[in-house]
């Protein structure tokens, strides 16, 4: 099966609140799939449904070929989940936390695996310290380590870099790329646009709906380019499609006459495109 995750017409209501409104998407095996959206977009609800912590109101879900509601035990042997809050025992050490969450899974040498995880998240010097003495970024590293213990085929990461400083975020993303390179599928929610660019594909979400689902390059192609042609004292500005053909067609009428002093091109950034998508609610 090429798809790690398939979601069709997924709805989730909490009383009167519609957290998800008929979402459909699929995640290929081995890809880093981003869920991009503001708070309340439905990213956490979707991830909780994928790991079987929330029951959908309607629609179907398949994760690694399992139904998260009916086959949660089998599914969870292959899924690593990192919640938005660190969700750790603050009075226990890094080592004890990794060992405890890891103990849920059978392992031939769990002690050695705990040490491997501690090295992987680079917390060897703080392995004995209670988690409450660690910084926010260190807690996130412990939390990531707990999710990786059983070498899961699918990692569900809910805003793993929330509150993490830029250098550490870079380290986290290096980990994610390494894990994806080793064959793991990663679904990661974020509201950071630079992180979205590092994903293979993205679902842009708002108010429980998917507005667009594409690669970052595909999303960038949806943007437009602003062309400013300075001709003498006059500046002519136009918005055109971000393709070489559109640019050539636009410049034809101005030509390259001696009066053209400069041609400035400003392409839409992913931020502009996403904000525009969100503002328009995904409509073309």
């Amino acid at each position: 099966m090429a798809e790690a995750v398939t979601v069709e017409g997924l709805e989730k209501r909490y009383g009167r609140v519609e957290a998800l409104r008929g979402i459909s998407l699929s995640v290929k095996r081995g890809e880093i799939f981003g869920l991009l959206g503001a708070n309340g977009a439905g990213k956490t609800t979707l991830i909780r449904i994928l790991v079987g912590l929330a029951r959908p109101t309607a629609g179907s879900v398949s994760v690694l070929g399992f139904d998260p509601n009916r086959e949660a035990a089998a599914l969870r042997r292959q899924v690593g989940f990192m919640p938005q809050s660190p969700a750790l025992y603050l009075d226990l050490s890094t080592r004890a936390n990794v060992a405890f969450f890891g103990a849920a899974h059978p392992h031939e040498n769990s002690g050695r695996r705990v040490e491997e995880i501690i090295d992987f998240v680079a917390l060897r010097e703080r392995a004995h310290d209670p988690v409450h003495t660690l910084s926010g970024g260190m807690k996130q590293r412990v939390s990531l380590g707990c999710a990786l213990f059983h070498k899961p085929a699918l990692l569900l990461l809910d805003e793993p870099t929330a509150g993490v400083d830029p250098p550490l975020r870079e380290i986290f993303w290096k980990h994610f790329r390494d894990l994806a390179a080793s064959g793991a599928t990663i679904v990661v929610s974020t509201h950071q646009l630079d992180e979205a660019l590092a994903c293979d594909r993205l679902a842009v979400m708002r108010d429980g709906a998917v507005l667009a689902c594409d690669s970052p390059a595909g999303l960038l192609r949806r943007g437009r380019t602003t062309v400013r042609v300075k001709c003498g004292d006059a500046i002519e500005e136009a918005r055109i499609e971000s393709t070489p053909e559109a640019l050539a067609a636009h410049l034809k009428h101005a030509g390259l006459s001696p009066e053209v002093a400069s041609v400035e091109l400003v392409a839409d950034t992913l931020e502009t495109i996403v904000l525009d998508l969100v503002r328009r609610g995904g409509a073309p």
Partner: peptide, 14 residues
């Protein structure tokens, strides 16, 4: 409240 209960479930504890 510490979110460790859902994490235990997600890890496979029953």
């Amino acid at each position: 409240t510490g979110e460790t209960l859902p994490r235990m479930f997600a890890c496979g504890y029953r």
